[in-house]
Nucleic acid binder design. Structure first.
Lengths: 156, 156
DNA sequence: GAGAATTAGGTTATAATGTTGCAATTCTAC
DNA sequence: GTAGAATTGCAACATTATAACCTAATTCTC
């Protein structure tokens, strides 16, 4: 729930970038300037962010800013698990704990707009339970919840 | 898993429409010709169906077929829980067990394209578990899984 | 049953989101 | 340093969804 509460924002971004670099080195892929900048922007917004919101932000930095540029960067980041896509919002958000492939899951507060990643272990367990019960073989999954977060539910 | 296996298709559609009529009467809303036809088409396709796929199908029946017509009908059907929206596919599919509001959840086979609704009770339980653990209040939820269904995973 | 209020549908245009195809450039490995 | 691969630039286009405004149908109230 860390990201539903106030916190040191710059720190978030910096560590996210550092982790990204590590992951990219490990996987032998390139964190190019556009890709890095897109990742920074996604973390900077710190809320689910649409691809088209990133375009002007990229342009402001002197980067090329046509849709394919952003989508290619986002696809790359999705691919190696540095961000997630929240399809009910057509939006993207930084991954809390990149490194391995894990199921996507978010709670999205309808009041403040923040999104908190769901505990991967529980998602994994539930997915396994469903595989069992339904006799299927799960390849990917995404769970999206909306409602009021711990902070907003206590507001007047 | 009923709808991942061969079955009497016309029967599906007929019962879906009958249930829809009941639900609409109960809720005091109108199942107008366009709405009914859209629901029939969604069931007829029997796979997640995009709004724009419905347009020519509606046109063939002599109905008006502009995007707003279809979206209005789909919104109505969503509202009263007769269909679900699968946002990772931008598609719609008939609800197995309409009547009450319940969490949306589907397993989508990447091979045959069929979608099976997840057991609502388990979704409900998992959602409650997450509410507890995360201290949030859930208003809606949608779980979308992909992979191989029981039939397709046994194919060569 | 007349008239007001509500709900539903028709029509046109446009917004928002995402993709394709190809040429130019940059990087990597040898 | 050169061939091949990966990345980016660019222009056009495809898909999905909504806004705005008006007309028609239905329901409600008296």
């Amino acid at each position: 729930m860390a990201n539903l509460h106030p916190h040191n924002h710059d720190h978030c971004i910096r560590t996210a970038i550092q982790r990204a670099q590590t992951v990219c080195e490990q996987q032998g892929v390139r964190l190019t300037p556009v890709r890095r900048r897109v990742l920074e922007l996604v973390w900077q917004n710190h809320k689910p962010t649409g691809a088209y919101e990133l375009l002007p932000q990229l342009a402001a930095d002197g980067f090329n800013s046509a849709p394919p540029t952003v989508y290619r960067a986002l696809d790359f980041l999705l691919e190696i698990g540095l961000i997630h896509r929240i399809s009910s919002l057509n939006a993207f958000i930084g991954c809390d704990h990149p490194g391995g492939q894990h199921p996507t899951g978010f709670f999205i507060c309808t009041d403040c707009g923040n999104a908190a990643e769901l505990p991967a272990a529980r998602l994994q367990a539930f997915s396994a339970e469903l595989e069992q019960v339904m006799g299927v073989q799960v390849a990917s999954s995404s769970y999206e919840l909306t409602g009021l977060c711990g902070v907003c539910r206590l507001k007047p």
